[in-house]
Design a protein around this nucleic acid. Structure first.
Length: 233
DNA sequence: GCGACAG
DNA sequence: ATCTTGTCGC
């Protein structure tokens, strides 16, 4: 089953920015109350190699929720055709991620993506873009800030601070979340089909003993070549 | 014109 | 993102 193509990916930066502004209008930040018994994690890596033809290697993992037992993992490699440009990450990584998506046996009910959701200059980070393309709830979980202002969150696990829009400081676009004591916080923002509070809660409920939530943490490991522990039977 | 800038 | 091991601190 192939998802209908929303738009082409081979665009130049200027066209990509215009497309983002257009797609942003289609986002929904409403949670519909669906049941969540599986969560997915998405990340991409760029393997080292002869400077010739670089590829993007995407990894998608599926874990049970709320137990967080790894169930499945897939990877896909696609030639890189778009440079890294802050604000246009989806045009570089999404093609590989969508290729990996086609290999998945079981589709998760919710996705945690390594990158921003709506906490983005045009309100359409990688997590939002993927959510629209896949028609699923997505949450952006970034390790650093791209857009937005905030006060420093408290030092304990679970402490948080609102991430505010730089355009209108009254707009809360995400949560700066401390997942490990005295460790750099995560930037969590809704991608699609979820609101700010729930995005932070789901992300926190996916955290165990590490800074990154399990879905994104495993996706990162798998993208780097690691294997998943044997699934429970 | 000068910084800032997911991965 | 990527080049890279051990090590200091909570």
């Amino acid at each position: 089953m192939t998802d209908p193509a929303l738009h082409p990916w081979d665009l130049d930066p200027a066209a990509a920015r215009r497309l983002q502004a257009e797609l942003r209008a289609r986002l929904s930040l409403a949670w519909d109350g669906r049941a969540v018994s599986t969560v997915g994690g998405i990340d991409a890596a760029v393997p080292l190699g002869p400077e010739g033809q670089q590829v993007a290697r995407a990894a998608i993992v599926v874990l049970s929720f709320p137990a967080l037992e790894p169930l499945e993992a897939v990877t896909a490699e696609v030639p890189l055709t778009f440079p890294y440009v802050p604000g246009l990450l989806s045009f570089r990584e999404a093609p590989a991620i969508l290729a990996a998506w086609q290999l998945l046996q079981r589709r998760p009910h919710l996705l945690l993506v390594d990158g921003q959701g709506i906490a983005h200059p045009r309100g359409l980070g990688l997590a939002s873009h993927l959510g629209l393309w896949l028609g699923l709830p997505t949450i952006g979980v970034a390790k650093s800030r791209l857009y937005g202002r905030h006060a420093p969150p408290g030092p304990a696990h679970g402490d948080r601070a609102d991430l505010l829009s730089q355009a209108s400081a009254a707009q809360v676009i995400g949560t700066v979340l401390r997942t490990r004591p005295r460790t750099n916080p995560l930037y969590v923002s809704p991608g699609h089909l979820i609101d700010v509070p729930r995005a932070a809660e789901f992300a926190l409920r996916c955290v165990t003993r590490y800074r990154l939530p399990e879905p994104t943490r495993w996706a990162h490991q798998v993208a780097g070549g690691a294997a998943l522990p044997p699934p429970p039977t």
